[in-house]
Design a protein around this nucleic acid. Structure first.
Length: 973
RNA sequence: GGGCGAGUGGCGGAAUGGUAGACGCGUUAGACUCAAAAUCUGGUAUCCGCAAGGAUGUGGGGGUUCAAGUCCCCCCUUGCCCACCA
C-alpha cells in the first residue's frame, strides 16, 4: 500500500496539468455551455498572500472546478492589479522602482498560487501595468471623454498629505486615507472626473435585481443615496420698509425632501461656504458672520463631523420670503448645513426635523406645526362612503402628586376594553384649558387641578363611529394636569360609572395600559417632545390643509412649478469619480494641454501614452506627480495644431485599471481592440465573482463602465457580474484582522511546506466556517483535514489493492445509499455556496465507509467502485491533487477534473428501514425502526404500543395523534 | 443616532417549524507497540441515577403551535455599514 505523500504528488500533478493544458480554455469551443468565474483581481501589496486571501481564491476555484467537471467549458483567469498606490508605496518602502518591486514580488505570488493548485488558465495571464493593457485603459478614457463623461473641474477635494495625492470619495474611510490610514484634508485643485452620477439612477434601480450578497447591495444603494424632493426658491427680502418686500437681492435655492412641510419653514440656513453669504450681512452682523465663517474654515471637515451635535450658528441680518405664504424668514448661517450636498442651503422646519428643532430650541426661533401625526384606530377603522365629522378634543393626563400615579379610564359599553387618558370634546367658545378642566371634573370628579403644560403638537385620530354612520376625526390638544392629593375628591357619579372606571396607575405602567396607538403616541410625546418627522395630515398650510402629506408633497410641488418658484428635484450622495492622481505609478491620462485648443485627447492611434521609466518617481508635493520632471516626455505637440503643448502629468486612479479587466480576460492579446464583442457575447457576463473587500468602489466603478460599454454596443449585458459573493475575512488566531503590519499573517507556503500539502490546507480553508462568517485561523485545524484526506487515501488504496468481491443485496444498498446521498448533498451545497457542510458530509460518508468495510470488505464490485469514484469526483474541487492521483492509480488515463461528476439515483437515497421518533406531548419518548413503506396506521399503532410511551401516557387517552411522514409521531394526551 | 445581521458545548460550527449540538478541533478510555508517534475503535452539553431512564438546556422575558434554536412582541449583548445628506 502506497503512503500519502502530498508534497510529491502535488508537484507531479501541477506539472502534468500545465503540460497538458488541463485548465486552458478555448474561447471558440461552443460545444459545451460556458462558465466564467473568478475572484477579484489580486493586487501586489507586498511580498505575498496570506491564508485569509487564499480562502477567497479558493471559493471561485471550487465553483469553477465543479462546473468544469459537470461538463462546462469553465474559465478561471488570473492576472495582476499592478498599477496604483499600493504598489508604488511598497516600492518606496523597499527602495526599488515600482516596476522592479512589482516584478520581483510577483514571483512569490505566482509561486504561492501555483502551489495551491488553483485551476487558472495561466496562458492568459494579464497585468494592468503592461502597455498592451493600459493602452486600452487609455482608450476607454478617450471614449468617456468623447461622450462627455470625463471632465476637468476646479473644486475642493480630499488630499492625503502622506501619500501626496488626491483621493476619490470612495477612498476616504472615516475621514482617513484608504491606504495609509492618515487623516485627509480638503484642497482646492483642478482635477479630472468621470461622470458616474449620470448612471446613478440606472445603477440604483438595477441593484435590487442583482444576485449579490445583500449587504453589498445595501451598501451600494446607501452610497448612491438617492433623495427625491424639490428645489424651492426663496427671494431675499428688501431690508427697508419699502412698498415691495421682494427686490433684487438674490434668490436662495434650497433642496428639501419634504416640500409638504413648506408652510412650516420658520427660518433659512446657509452653509458657511454659501456664495450669497457676503451680500446678506449688514454692519451689525458683518463681524460675527465673518468670525463664524473663519472658524468653520479653520476646522477641518473631519473635526466638524466628529464634534458633538451641539448646534452653532449666526444670524445674517437678512430675511427671505417664503414663496408659499409670504412669511419673512430670518436667514442664518450654520455648519450643520453642508456645502457639498443639495444646494448648500435649507429651509428649516423645526416642527418636523430633528436638526432644525435643536437649532430652533437653542436660538429661540419660532416653531410652527404643519403636519398632524394621524393614527387610524385599528379597532374601528374609517369606512368608505361615510361622512367625515371633525371634532376638536382634549386629552389630559392627570397626575396625583402625592402618589405619583396617573389617572386612566377603562371604558365600558361601546368602547369596551379600551383604556385612555381623560378626554373629551371642546365645546364652542371654550378654551382648550377650560375644556380640559371640564373633562376632569366630569370624568374624574376632581375640580382644583393645576394645568402644568400643554403639548406643542396637536395630533389626529381617525375612527368610525359606525352606529352613526360617521367617520370621525378627532383633533387632539394634549395637556398635563396635577392635583396635590385626592383629598376626598374623585367620587364619580353613577351615570359616569356606567361609561368608564377611573383607575390610578404607576407612571411606568401607563404606556402598557393605554390601548389605542394614538393614545400611546400622545403619552410618549408628553414625556419627551420630539419633532414629528412622520407622515400625517396638513394644518396651518392654507389651501392644503387637511391633505395627506404624501399627496401634499406632489400638489405643493405642482403649485411651485406653476408659480415658477420651485421644481421637483432628485439629488444623490454619490459624487463624480475623481480619477486624477498626483502619483507616478499609474496609466498616464492621455491628454495634451494646448495653449490654443485646451485639453486635447491623444488620438486613439497614438495610444498607448507610455509611462516613462523614472528613477526618481517619488511624490514631491505641490500637487503634481513626478512625471512633471520628465521634461522630454511632458513637452510634445498638440494633436490638433501641431504647435508645442504639454502632456497631462496626472495618472489614472488604479481603480480605473481594474474596472474592465474581466473583459480583457476574454481577449487578452488583442492588439486591435480592447476585446472582441463577439467573444464577450458568448462568455459574458462573469457568472461567479467573489472577494472580501471593495464593496463600494471597485464594484460600483465596474458597473458604471459596463453600463457605458453597453450603451456603446461593446458588450451584451449592462451588468458585469452575475452571482457576487462577498465573503468574510479569516481572522488571525488572536481574533484580529490579519495584516502584515501587525505581523500576524500566516503564509500558506509555511503550512504546505510543513508536510500537510495544498489539499489539506484547501479543505481546511473551506471547512473552517461558512463563507459569510468571520472565523479566527486555528492552526490545529489543518491536521484535522489532513487526517480526513488520509482516510480517503487509505480507503482508495484498499480498493485498489483488493481483488473482486461479491456483496449481498443489503451490503450494496447500504454502501450505495451513503454514496448517492452524499453525491446529491455535496452537489447541492456547492451550488448554494455551502462549502463547509459539503465537506462535513464527505467526512460523514468516509466515516460510514469505515464502519461498513468491517462487515463488507472493500474490493472490486460495482457498489464499492461507485462509492470510491463518486467520492473522489465530489472531493476533487476541494482537493484536486490527491483525487487526481487516486483516480489515476485506479487505472483512469484521463483527468478527473474534466467532465467527471457523479449522478445519483433516487432509489438509493433511502434505506429500507427508517427511524421514526415518537413524542408524547412534544417530548421525545421513543424511537421506532420501521420499514420505509410502513403505513401511517401501522406506525401510529406501533407508537401507541411502545412501553415507554405508555408510561408517559399513563391511563389518559390520546386526544390527537400527529404523524409527520418518515419523521415522527406526536401523541397529545 | 439610523439601517442590516448575529447570539447554540471548552473551541470552530450543524440543524426545510418535527430526534438540538451533525462534522471537525480539543479531551478521555481502549486496541496495536518494548515504548512513543501514527493509525483504528468507543465516550465526551449540564444535573440526578449502578443502569434502564429522567430533569434541565440554543442571551433574558412573554406569546403563537400538537411541536419553537427556527415564527411574533419586548429587552440585553455584539458585529458590520451609514452617520448633521435637509
Amino acid at each position: 500500500m502506497k503512503r500519502y505523500n502530498p508534497t510529491e504528488i502535488e508537484q507531479k500533478w501541477q506539472d502534468v496539468w500545465e503540460r497538458n493544458g488541463t485548465y486552458k480554455v478555448d474561447f471558440s469551443d461552443h460545444s459545451k455551455p460556458k462558465y466564467y468565474g473568478m475572484s477579484m483581481l489580486p493586487g501586489i501589496t507586498g511580498a505575498g498572500i496570506h491564508t485569509g486571501h487564499g480562502r477567497t481564491f479558493q471559493f471561485s476555484d471550487i465553483k469553477v472546478r465543479a462546473k468544469r467537471q459537470q461538463g462546462y467549458n469553465a474559465y478561471n483567469p488570473i492576472g495582476w492589479d499592478s498599477f496604483g498606490l499600493p504598489v508604488e508605496n511598497y516600492a518606496i518602502k523597499i527602495g526599488k522602482t515600482p516596476r522592479v518591486a512589482h516584478d520581483e514580488a510577483k514571483v512569490n505570488f505566482k509561486k504561492q498560487l501555483k502551489r495551491l493548485g488553483y485551476s487558472y488558465d495561466w496562458s492568459k495571464e494579464i497585468s494592468t501595468a503592461d502597455p498592451s493593457y493600459y493602452k486600452w485603459t487609455q482608450w476607454i478614457f478617450n471614449q468617456l471623454y468623447k461622450h462627455d463623461l470625463a471632465y476637468q473641474k476646479q473644486s475642493p477635494q480630499w488630499w492625503c498629505e502622506t501619500d501626496q495625492t488626491v483621493l476619490a470619495n470612495e477612498q476616504v474611510i472615516d475621514g482617513k486615507c484608504w491606504r495609509c490610514g492618515n487623516q485627509v484634508s480638503k484642497k482646492n485643485l483642478k482635477q479630472w472626473f468621470f461622470k458616474i452620477t449620470e448612471y446613478a439612477d440606472e445603477m440604483l434601480d438595477a441593484t435590487d435585481d442583482l444576485n449579490w450578497t445583500e449587504m453589498v447591495k445595501t451598501m451600494q444603494k446607501n452610497w448612491i443615496g438617492r433623495s427625491v424632493g424639490a428645489e424651492v426658491e426663496f427671494a431675499v427680502a428688501n431690508s427697508g420698509d419699502g412698498d415691495s418686500e421682494i427686490g433684487n437681492r438674490g434668490i436662495i435655492t434650497v433642496f428639501t425632501t419634504r416640500p409638504d412641510t413648506l408652510f412650516g419653514a420658520t427660518f433659512i440656513v446657509l452653509s458657511p461656504e454659501h456664495e450669497l453669504v457676503k451680500t446678506l450681512v449688514n454692519d451689525e452682523t458683518r463681524q460675527s458672520v465673518e468670525n463664524y465663517i473663519a472658524d468653520a474654515a479653520r476646522k477641518s471637515e473631519i473635526e466638524r463631523m466628529n464634534e458633538s451635535r451641539e448646534k452653532t450658528g449666526v444670524f445674517t441680518g437678512s430675511y427671505a420670503i417664503n414663496p408659499v405664504n409670504g412669511n419673512k424668514l430670518p436667514i442664518w448661517i450654520a455648519d450643520y448645513v453642508l456645502s457639498g450636498y443639495g444646494t448648500g442651503a435649507i429651509m428649516a422646519v423645526p416642527a418636523h426635523d430633528e436638526r432644525d428643532f435643536a437649532f430652533a430650541e437653542k436660538f429661540n426661533l419660532p416653531i410652527t406645526q404643519v403636519i398632524m401625526p394621524c393614527s387610524i384606530d385599528p379597532i374601528n377603522p374609517p369606512q368608505a362612503g361615510f361622512d367625515e365629522v371633525v371634532r376638536e378634543t382634549v386629552i389630559v393626563h392627570l397626575r396625583d402628586k402625592s402618589t405619583g400615579k396617573f389617572a386612566l379610564l377603562d371604558w365600558h359599553n361601546s368602547l369596551d376594553g379600551i383604556t385612555t387618558a381623560i378626554m373629551g370634546g371642546i365645546e364652542d367658545g371654550q378654551s382648550v384649558e377650560d375644556a380640559a378642566r371640564a373633562e376632569i371634573s366630569e370624568e374624574a370628579a376632581i375640580n382644583n387641578v393645576t394645568i402644568v403644560k400643554q403639548l406643542r403638537w396637536i395630533t389626529a385620530a381617525q375612527y368610525c363611529a359606525s352606529h352613526k354612520s360617521q367617520n370621525r376625526k378627532a383633533i387632539s390638544h394634549v395637556l398635563l394636569a396635577e392635583i396635590d392629593s385626592l383629598d376626598g375628591q374623585g367620587k364619580i357619579d353613577s351615570n359616569e360609572q356606567n361609561l368608564h372606571t377611573l383607575v390610578w396607575v404607576d407612571e411606568a405602567e401607563v404606556l402598557n395600559r393605554l390601548t389605542p396607538a394614538h393614545q400611546k403616541l400622545v403619552w410618549e410625546q408628553l414625556n419627551h417632545e420630539t419633532p414629528i418627522s412622520s407622515e400625517g395630515i396638513l394644518m396651518n398650510s392654507g389651501q392644503f390643509d387637511g391633505m395627506e402629506s404624501s399627496d401634499a408633497r406632489e400638489q405643493i410641488v405642482d403649485w411651485l412649478e406653476q408659480q415658477a418658484t420651485g421644481k421637483s428635484k432628485t439629488t444623490y450622495k454619490m459624487r463624480d469619480w475623481l480619477i486624477s492622481r498626483q502619483r507616478y505609478w499609474g496609466a498616464p491620462i492621455p491628454i495634451i494641454h494646448c495653449p490654443e485648443h485646451g485639453a486635447v485627447a491623444v488620438p486613439d492611434d497614438q495610444l498607448p501614452v507610455i509611462l516613462p521609466e523614472l528613477e526618481d518617481f517619488k511624490p514631491r508635493g505641490g500637487a503634481t506627480s513626478a512625471l512633471a520632471s520628465a521634461t522630454d516626455w511632458v513637452n510634445t505637440t498638440c494633436p490638433t495644431c501641431g504647435k508645442p503643448a504639454l502632456r497631462e502629468t496626472d495618472t489614472l486612479d488604479g481603480y480605473a485599471c481594474s474596472s474592465w479587466y474581466f473583459l480583457r480576460y476574454l481577449d487578452p492579446f488583442n492588439d486591435n481592440q480592447a476585446w472582441d464583442p463577439e467573444v464577450e457575447k458568448h462568455w459574458g457576463p462573469v457568472d461567479f465573482y467573489n472577494g472580501a473587500d471593495h464593496a463600494v468602489a471597485h464594484l460600483l466603478y465596474s458597473r458604471f463602465w459596463m453600463r457605458f460599454f453597453y450603451k456603446l454596443g461593446l458588450v451584451s449585458t449592462p451588468e458585469p457580474f452575475g452571482r457576487m459573493m462577498y465573503n468574510a475575512y479569516i481572522l488571525a488566531p488572536d481574533g484580529t484582522k490579519m495584516s502584515k503590519s501587525k505581523g500576524n499573517t500566516i503564509d500558506p507556503l509555511e503550512i504546505m511546506d510543513s508536510g500537510y500539502g495544498a489539499d489539506s490546507l484547501r479543505v481546511y480553508e473551506m471547512f473552517i466556517a461558512p463563507y459569510d462568517l468571520e472565523a479566527p485561523w486555528d492552526t490545529r485545524g489543518v491536521p484535522g483535514t489532513y487526517r480526513f484526506l488520509n482516510r480517503v487515501w487509505t480507503l482508495a488504496q484498499e480498493y485498489i489493492d483488493a481483488g473482486e468481491v461479491n456483496l449481498t443485496d443489503t451490503a450494496v444498498k447500504e454502501i450505495l445509499v451513503t454514496a448517492h446521498r452524499t453525491a446529491k448533498k455535496v452537489s447541492a451545497d456547492i451550488n448554494d455556496d455551502k462549502f463547509n457542510t459539503a465537506i462535513s458530509s464527505m467526512m460523514e460518508a468516509v466515516n460510514n465507509y469505515y464502519k461498513l468495510k468491517v462487515q463488507y470488505p472493500v474490493g472490486k464490485s460495482p457498489a464499492w467502485t461507485y462509492a470510491v469514484e463518486s467520492l473522489l469526483q465530489i472531493l476533487s474541487p476541494f482537493a484536486p491533487h490527491i483525487t487526481e492521483e487516486l483516480w489515476s492509480q485506479m487505472g483512469h488515463t484521463d483527468t478527473i477534473h474534466v467532465d467527471h461528476w457523479p449522478t445519483w439515483d433516487n432509489q438509493y437515497l433511502q434505506m429500507d428501514t427508517i427511524t421514526i421518533v415518537v413524542q408524547v406531548n412534544g417530548k421525545l419518548r421513543a424511537k421506532l425502526s420501521v420499514v420505509s413503506d410502513a403505513t401511517e396506521d401501522d406506525i401510529k399503532q406501533l407508537a401507541l404500543n411502545d412501553a415507554n410511551v405508555q408510561i408517559f401516557m399513563g391511563n389518559k387517552k390520546p386526544t390527537k395523534v400527529i404523524y409527520v411522514p418518515g419523521r415522527l409521531v406526536n401523541i397529545v394526551v
